[in-house]
Each structure stands twice: as C-alpha cells, then as structure tokens.
Measured scan of single mutants.
Amino acid sequence: KITVTFNGEEKARRYYKKMQKHNLKVEIRVENNQWVVHVE
C-alpha cells in the first residue's frame, strides 16, 4: 500500500487517474490540508 501526499488538488487528481488506469484500488482524500492518494 502506497500513500502519496500532494500540496495541490490538480497534481493529486492527475496521479489518481494515472493509477486508476493500472486497475489499482485508489482512494483520494484531504488530510491536514494536504491531498493524499492511497494506492492498494
């Protein structure tokens, strides 16, 4: 499981979509004013 933190929504969403293309289970959320993407 990987957790990647971004300081911008745009970058986070781009990464999220990229990971989805690989058929990975991805989850995006905001934690402590940071955009966090969890990849299983």
Rank of each mutant, 00 (worst) to 15 (best):
Lys1Ile: 12
Lys1Ser: 13
Lys1Glu: 07
Lys1Met: 12
Ile2Arg: 09
Ile2Thr: 08
Ile2Leu: 12
Ile2Pro: 03
Thr3His: 05
Thr3Lys: 08
Thr3Pro: 02
Val4Arg: 09
Val4Leu: 11
Val4Asn: 03
Val4Glu: 03
Val4Trp: 05
Thr5Ile: 14
Thr5Ser: 08
Thr5Ala: 09
Thr5Asp: 02
Phe6Thr: 01
Phe6Met: 02
Asn7Leu: 09
Asn7Asp: 15
Asn7Phe: 09
Asn7Val: 10
Gly8Ala: 15
Gly8Arg: 14
Gly8Lys: 15
Glu9Phe: 13
Glu9Ser: 05
Glu10Gln: 09
Glu10Asn: 09
Glu10Thr: 08
Glu10Trp: 12
Glu10Val: 09
Glu10Lys: 12
Lys11Cys: 14
Lys11Thr: 14
Lys11Pro: 15
Ala12Cys: 04
Ala12Phe: 05
Ala12Tyr: 05
Arg13Asp: 04
Arg13Lys: 11
Arg13Tyr: 13
Arg14Met: 11
Arg14Glu: 15
Arg14Asp: 15
Arg14Gly: 05
Arg14Lys: 12
Tyr15Arg: 01
Tyr15Trp: 07
Tyr16His: 04
Tyr16Phe: 12
Tyr16Cys: 12
Lys17Arg: 11
Lys17Pro: 01
Lys17Trp: 10
Lys17Met: 13
Lys17Gln: 13
Lys18Ala: 14
Lys18Met: 14
Met19Thr: 02
Met19Trp: 05
Met19Asn: 02
Met19Gly: 02
Met19Lys: 03
Gln20Leu: 15
Gln20Met: 12
Gln20Asp: 03
Gln20Ala: 09
Gln20Arg: 10
Lys21Pro: 02
Lys21Phe: 09
Lys21Met: 13
His22Asp: 07
His22Pro: 04
Asn23Asp: 07
Asn23Val: 04
Asn23Gln: 08
Leu24Val: 12
Leu24His: 08
Leu24Ala: 07
Leu24Thr: 05
Leu24Phe: 14
Lys25His: 11
Lys25Asp: 05
Val26Trp: 02
Val26Ala: 07
Val26Phe: 02
Glu27Arg: 04
Glu27Val: 10
Arg29Gly: 08
Arg29Lys: 11
Val30Ala: 08
Val30Gly: 05
Val30Cys: 11
Val30Gln: 14
Val30Arg: 13
Glu31Gln: 07
Glu31His: 08
Glu31Val: 12
Glu31Cys: 08
Asn32Ala: 07
Asn33Thr: 05
Gln34Glu: 07
Gln34Val: 13
Trp35Phe: 04
Trp35Gly: 00
Val36Ile: 11
Val36Glu: 04
Val36Tyr: 06
Val37Phe: 02
Val37Asn: 00
His38Thr: 15
His38Ala: 10
His38Pro: 00
Val39Asp: 00
Val39Ala: 03
Val39Glu: 00
Val39Ile: 12
Glu40Tyr: 15
Glu40Gly: 11
